[in-house]
């Protein structure tokens, strides 16, 4: 009967695992005082879109409702003038 009981409880880690205590999400637009989201700036808009080019939900990006609508509208405009794809496989 192995004396060393390595139950999950007392596994010693060299350094505590960087468990992400859920850091308070904030709306980057309100914090930085951005008032207008430019639909021509595709590199900035790709931050709000996942690999397939789909819009990220607010719970992941943490943006407020008002600015999520503006982001959505800007991304759809960028897609219309072919600055951003409607669907793709590896955007990043």
């Amino acid at each position: 009967m192995s004396t060393t009981s390595n139950t999950a409880g007392n596994i010693r880690f060299l350094n505590p695992p960087a468990v992400e205590v859920n850091k308070k999400k904030y709306c980057r637009f309100k914090k930085m005082g951005i008032k207008y989201i430019d639909y021509k700036d595709a590199t900035f808009l790709t931050k709000f879109v996942n690999e397939q080019g789909k819009l990220l939900p607010r719970r992941l990006t943490g943006t407020s409702l008002k600015f999520q609508r503006k982001v959505g509208q800007a991304v759809k405009r960028a897609r219309h003038i072919a600055l951003m794809p409607y669907v793709t496989d590896l955007l990043k």
Binding site: K35, Y36, D38, Y39, R77, H80, I81, A82
Partner: peptide
């Protein structure tokens, strides 16, 4: 091939 016309509000003009 394609065009897009947007009305600019005051924030957009300032930007």
């Amino acid at each position: 091939m394609r065009f897009l016309t947007i009305a600019l509000d005051k924030h957009a003009v300032a930007y």
